[in-house]
Nucleic acid binder design. Structure first.
Lengths: 337, 337
DNA sequence: TTGAAAGCGCTAACAT
DNA sequence: ATGTTAGCGCTTTCAA
């Protein structure tokens, strides 16, 4: 069923049907009603590929989300949606897997849907100059920057927290409570991504406090999920029972780690203090509540939109914004005796 | 930059470029390499709207996910993805908000992308015959059926758990431990959706055990999130302190409720036993671990694919599959003294 | 107010 | 092995 079929059934031309479909004013009420009636009767649905193909430009902005399961993303997306709406644009969200190439996916969207700009939620920290050339519209990296690549600042925009420094702050909070034997639970120490950055922050904090890095206290899970975090934490606990504090690079992993600690008969925070970074809702509800550095989800959603719209409208060039986290005091930390 | 530009730069025709793009064999290595080189140099990205428009059919199947944040969906999606892949099809996932119309969104996808079939993950329980007519391909409702609509069984396919009965079983587990004063925490008792079904199961269990329904023990949160669940639970606890057990319609809400119980100085399960339905990973890691009826995520993902593929290939007609849950023993229930 | 016709970018016959 | 061309379904001039 195409627009042509509708036209024939109504005894009008395709352009008239198109006008009705697009709410153009210059169609007589009689004709409009007839067309609408037929459309409804035959359950006609326009082909958006054809529509997109013919349109020369839109007020659409794309959002490419890499890593569907990420609970922090889930919270940021609605914020972005509202901010884009408020700015007079329409958001087109596209989810991809972590294995997929967000630049490629974004470029295809831009091209097919004639997008004005792109927000990338989660992506690689090491783009090359060549790679970003597929994008010929303004774009903003949200939650990540180019820490492991060689882009110059003027070549892209980003909104992030300072992962390394925030990790450092988290560990310093532990050190401030007298802890010296501090373990870390992370995905990988060399993923050229968030895990590596936060590991570096951990190292810095130790160094600044004159604590020697103990590699045996660095526990890699190899993946970003609760099951592996739990298993890994168990391993660490079996291997070592002399650390008094733990820094975990993400809330969800921290919650699994806390259960592992519980299961070997130790208590949080009495035996082991735990701190993490993220601030997902769940971590406030568990017992004991997790002390964590909360990412500013509102700003993390609104700032990219502000930057992107400024670039699209030529009001400003590219920018890099680094957002601060806030400590959410839980019940998972105590001072060492 | 279009296929025509590439053709000109290479001194070949558009069809040759198209052949290269689509990996057709009959292109000389020399020409192919030159085309590939230019494509790479100019960062050409094909316009998928144009591609979709011209293609007459595909081996693509659509997945419309309604309600991005749902943690259970997050787990089922990869299962569906793999099952579709194994069946020789390609999955095209599309996320929409809970306010949006999944049938409409699905119909548009089908039409623009020439899909062979559709899986709807989360949707309305009350379609009318008229409404489903927009879909002219086989489709399967995943996690929901037509409990509040008037469709005949032959008009659609579905894979669900028996929400009413499973809720009943959950409450009966509580009753089996001697509980008589059993509260329920739910979104709404009349949402024509999952919440209402599980409420009905709660009522049935009470009735079968000869326990009179106490409306004051029925606590509606009004929304499906942890914050409202926590607040609502606090209200219930302030109003009543005589119930010994609680049934919550979803794991995430149950975890918030458990924190509320903790915060008023009561203990789970000593003072109040808690049970829920869902089986999200998180509920196994909290302390005390939540006892819950686990939805069979593997089957919930694979069965819809089986049904859909059978329908697409004409091997079988529509089907309705009801999957059983399994009890995951946690630490949130104990017998009444 | 309505219709005819061009053309968006691509693929797939059909020629050569 | 490569080129020519029709046409996918729609919107949008331009004419009437």
């Amino acid at each position: 069923m195409t627009i042509k079929d509708i036209a024939e059934r109504c005894g009008v031309s395709v352009s008239t049907v198109s006008r009705v479909l697009n709410d153009h004013p210059d169609v007589s009420k009689m004709v409009r009603d007839r067309v609408l009636k037929v459309i409804d009767e035959v359950h006609y649905v326009p082909n958006s590929s054809a529509r997109d193909l013919v349109k020369t430009q839109s007020d659409d902005v794309g959002l490419v989300v890499r890593g569907a399961g990420n609970p922090f993303f889930t919270e940021v997306i609605p914020v972005i949606e509202q901010a884009i709406e408020r700015a007079g644009y329409t958001l087109l969200t596209h989810q991809i897997n972590t294995e997929d190439d967000e630049l490629r996916a974004g470029a295809e969207l831009v091209r097919s849907k004639k997008l004005k700009g792109l927000i990338l939620l989660g992506g690689c920290f090491d783009y090359s100059e060549e790679q970003i050339k597929v994008l010929d519209v303004p774009f903003v990296c949200c939650t990540y920057g180019n820490s492991f690549g060689k882009l110059r600042d003027i070549q892209y925009s980003s909104v992030t927290i300072d992962d390394m420094n925030e990790a450092r702050k988290a560990v310093e909070l532990l050190i401030g409570q007298g802890h010296r034997k501090i373990a870390i639970l992370l995905d990988s120490i060399c993923d050229s991504s968030i895990s590596e950055l936060r590991y570096l922050g951990y190292c810095q904090a130790l160094k600044a406090a004159g604590i020697e890095l103990d590699d045996d206290l660095v526990q890699e899970t190899g993946a970003f999920n609760m099951e592996d975090a739990y298993r890994s934490m168990k391993e660490l606990l079996q291997r070592r029972d002399d650390f008094t504090a733990l820094f975990v690079i993400a809330d969800s992993m921290a919650l699994a780690a806390m259960r592992a600690i519980h299961d070997v008969g130790k208590q949080v925070p009495k035996d082991i203090s735990v701190i993490a970074i993220d601030g997902i809702p769940m971590s406030a509800y568990v017992v004991p509540a997790l002390t964590t550095l909360v990412q500013p989800k509102k700003e993390m959603g609104e700032e990219p939109v502000r930057i992107l719209v400024d670039m699209i409208e030529g009001k400003a060039g590219n920018r890099h914004v680094i957002l601060p986290t806030t400590v959410r005091e839980g019940e998972s930390i105590c001072a060492i005796r």
